[in-house]
């Protein structure tokens, strides 16, 4: 079953950021309850870099959230000590915590996979390598293989490794989005039994605001079609949540057919369907991106 990770408990959002700073539980708990009611399977706790006081803050947020819900949490910060502090207090009954994230860099892998094993947690395996963002699908696969090997060495089981392909904005690096899709499509064979996840909304970063939901929704269905098993999403956006839960089977079929080389007859489609087919073709790289891709 496709899992939804809600991205909303994030220090960058004003209400949440202020609440974190003031150690005011209410807005955070309200948000957590809302996200769970909307169907989130996990909640991302994003503290940013959290260099100062990160440990204490992470422990506080985890306990605050777990006081009102029993969902596993993504512990999202670059501060390793803060992650460990979160792991220590993460409720066992909520399920396994997930470290977000471990890149394919020796210094990160050596430190963090053993930490995941020690606390019986999972982790996001981010295919970012020593040379930065991978240039194509093969480089993503090579980095993923390294992460999988390191996770296995540390004793973390496959389903607790959440492979993240690194979604890139389509408006500036259209080819990279293609490689990302291609890589996710390789996972069922290359990494059976492993989980996958992604920061979906990055695909539309930089595109016109009014077209971002369409891009996000379309790309989610495309990635689901090739086997993605979860995504980090806006837990307040009912449309994208519905798509994650599979409520738009009609569009999923249309997009799947388009991707599989059975394009629908455009004249038989309604306006919404045409938008999704056009967007699928554009994301696949069949037409070159421009902000006006829908008008062409």
């Amino acid at each position: 079953m496709f899992r939804i990770i809600a991205e909303n408990i994030n220090v960058m959002y004003k209400t949440i950021g202020t609440a974190m700073k003031e150690r005011n539980k209410e807005p955070i708990q309200e948000m957590a309850e809302k996200l769970v009611a909307n169907g989130a399977d996990l909640l991302d706790i994003n503290l940013g870099p959290a260099r100062k006081g990160g440990e204490e803050l992470m422990a506080w947020v985890v306990e605050t959230v777990h006081a009102v819900c029993s969902k596993p949490l993504y512990l999202d910060t670059s501060n390793v000590a803060a992650i460990e502090a979160g792991l220590k207090v993460h409720k066992e009954s909520a399920g396994k915590a997930v470290i977000n994230s471990i890149s394919a860099r020796p210094e990160r892998m050596d430190k963090l996979w053993p930490l995941a094993a020690k606390y019986n947690a999972g982790a996001v395996a981010l295919v970012l390598g020593v040379d930065g963002i991978p240039r194509d699908a093969a480089e993503r696969a090579a980095n993923a293989a390294m992460l999988m090997a390191a996770a296995a060495d540390a004793g973390v089981s496959p389903e607790d490794v959440w492979i993240d392909p690194i979604v890139i904005p389509v408006n500036s690096q259209q080819q990279q989005v293609g490689y990302c899709t291609e890589f996710i499509g390789m996972l069922p064979e290359m990494a059976p039994g492993y989980s996958s996840t992604c920061g979906l909304s990055n695909v539309s970063n930089g595109s016109p605001e009014k077209l971002r939901p369409l891009l996000n929704q379309c790309y989610l269905m495309m990635l689901k079609h090739v086997g993605l098993t979860s995504a980090i999403l806006d837990g307040l956006d009912r449309e994208i949540l519905g798509i994650a839960r599979g409520e738009r089977a009609d569009l999923e079929k249309l997009i799947g057919d388009t991707m599989d080389g059975n394009p629908p007859d455009m004249s038989s489609l309604n306006e919404e369907q045409v938008s999704f087919v056009k967007t699928t073709n554009m994301i696949m790289g069949k037409t070159l991106y421009s902000d006006s891709w829908l008008d062409l």
Partner: peptide, 15 residues
């Protein structure tokens, strides 16, 4: 020096 912006500007001029 951006392929996508080049295309977009031509679209705008056509419009």
């Amino acid at each position: 020096i951006d392929i996508n912006l080049a295309k977009q500007l031509n679209v705008l001029l056509s419009n």
